[in-house]
Structure formats: C-alpha cells, structure tokens
Design a protein around this nucleic acid. Structure first.
Lengths: 139, 139
DNA sequence: GTTGTTGCAAAGAATTTGCAACATA
DNA sequence: TATGTTGCAAATTCTTTGCAACAAC
C-alpha cells in the first residue's frame, strides 16, 4: 500500500496543506495516546515548531470533522487521536491515555437489536472500555 | 416498596436536606431528559423556585458523585439525569435529550472478554446508543 | 451552638471570534 | 491573484472558588 502522505491526507479532507496543519497532523501520527489542544500546542512550542494555539484548536476540530480524529472528553477538555476510517470502539488507559481501537461485532448486533425493539432510529453509538493497560498495570 | 422521600435520598448521600437541594432533586424526578446546570437553573428561576446557579452546580455534582445521577457530555456542557443504582447503558435521543436506561448482558460479556484477552484491567465502561426516539421519529 | 450550605462577586479555564497580515494553490 | 489560513487579542461560555451571612441538625 502507498504511504499516507500528510499533505494528501489534508487535501483529502478539503484543507490546504499548510506548514501548521502538516505539523499538527504529523505530531499526531504514531501517537498511541489522545492529546488535548493545549497539550499539543505546548509540545509543539517546546519542540520549536511554533503553531498558534488557535490554529491547533481549529486544525484538530477540522480533522475531527473530517473523520480523521476521534475525540475523547477528558475532564472538561477534548482529547484527540488519529483513528481509522471504519467504525470501532476503544480501550482507554486512564494512566497513560493510550487508546486502542477494537472492533466488536457483538456490540453492533446488540445496538441493532435494542434499537429495533424500541423503534429507535440509530445515528451512532459508542462503546468504550476504561481501565489500565497491560504496560501501566505491570508497573 | 416505600416511596423514595427526597430528603431521605439526600441524607443517604451524606447531604443535608436543604430547600435548595430538595428543589433540585425534585425537579429531576420523573424527568426523562438529561438537563444541564444552566438550564435547570433557568427552569427553577422561571418556576419561582430560586436557587443560586452555584448551588445548582454544586448539587448536581454532589448527586452525581453519590451515584444518583448520570452525566452526559453535550457540546461543551454536562447534562445530568437521575439514574438507577445498578450498572446500565443508555439510549439517548438527540432530538429531545430523553435518556432510556438499558441493561445488556452481551455488552458486559464483551467487555470481560476483550479485557482479559489484552491484559487490560477494567475500571469501567460505557456503551451508549445515540439516535432519535420513537416519539420524536414519529413527528 | 456547630457545622454544613448558600449565593454573590470574582476568578479560572477551555474554546471561539474579529480581523489584518500572510501563505497556498 | 483569489481565496483560504494564521495568530494575536478580546470575547464567550461553562464551571469553580472565596467568603460572609445563614440554615440544618
């Protein structure tokens, strides 16, 4: 398969490939943990890749709208993480904020059956598991 | 079964039964929709039951801590709703904010199996379905 | 009477918006 | 060059805190 080029991913999302957006998206690549706009801004600044806080907010929001990121409410903040295209669920480590994606046929079946039983038209669902990942639990 | 008296419920939660807290908890009873602190404050004020906004925030927070309320992130806000004692999931109507509780053995089993397969120590999980309830869909 | 509670005003914190300078296509 | 983007400062919005008056037990 072809390497996913950051600038192409941005253009696919209908966004111009600016230095700032490329920086943000690259910073998200290969990261297992979800991160907030504030934290990411701090990291970029520390790494000498200055991007305005406003731009970080706007970029994360655009990428999430485009379906490239999942958003996780954490305290009063939104944390973001790159995600796959298809529907999935999450295993969220509360110690390191690592997020693993999982697919779950049984959950999809459950959603369908509950909804049809109740005359509920489903627009979405979320099934996330919180806890401590094996790495953190080992400590 | 005994009627649940509001003041008793408050005392069970370790809170003094003040007029304000009784008012808030009573306003939550029999309500199918989740409501935010701001909205509830406005409603109480309109109903001539003045309770300070700060107190509404504090009361909702205490009740949620005591396990009497479920919290739902909605846009940038927290919405609350009375909930049952035992573990459950939700069917959330995005049109009227109504929340129905559902139990789901299959979800519990799924959580256990995923966690054990991955060496993940579970502290909690959440499985909510979003959509439009039968009442709203009929409109 | 003690101790927890209220509510105002002020502080805090996350996020959004206006707008002029600027970069991308 | 035309249009989208940036980033600062300022504004918004939700939520929390300090503190003196007050109410529950």
């Amino acid at each position: 398969m072809a390497e996913t080029v950051t600038s192409d991913a941005l253009r696919d999302a209908g966004l111009r490939a600016t230095r700032q957006r490329t920086t943000v998206l690259d910073a998200l690549r290969g990261r297992a943990e979800a991160i907030t706009a504030q934290d990411l801004h701090g990291e970029l600044r520390a790494a000498g890749e200055p991007v305005g806080l406003t731009t970080v907010y706007r970029t994360l929001s655009s990428l999430a709208d485009a379906g490239l990121l999942d958003a996780f409410p954490r305290d009063g903040e939104q944390a973001f993480r790159l995600c796959s295209d298809d529907h999935h669920h999450h295993l969220i480590c509360e110690a390191c904020n690592r997020v693993d994606e999982i697919t779950a046929e049984e959950v999809e079946r459950w959603v369908d059956s509950v909804a049809s039983r109740r005359g509920f038209r489903v627009t979405g669902h979320r099934a996330d598991v919180f806890g401590v990942c094996s790495d953190c639990g080992r400590a």
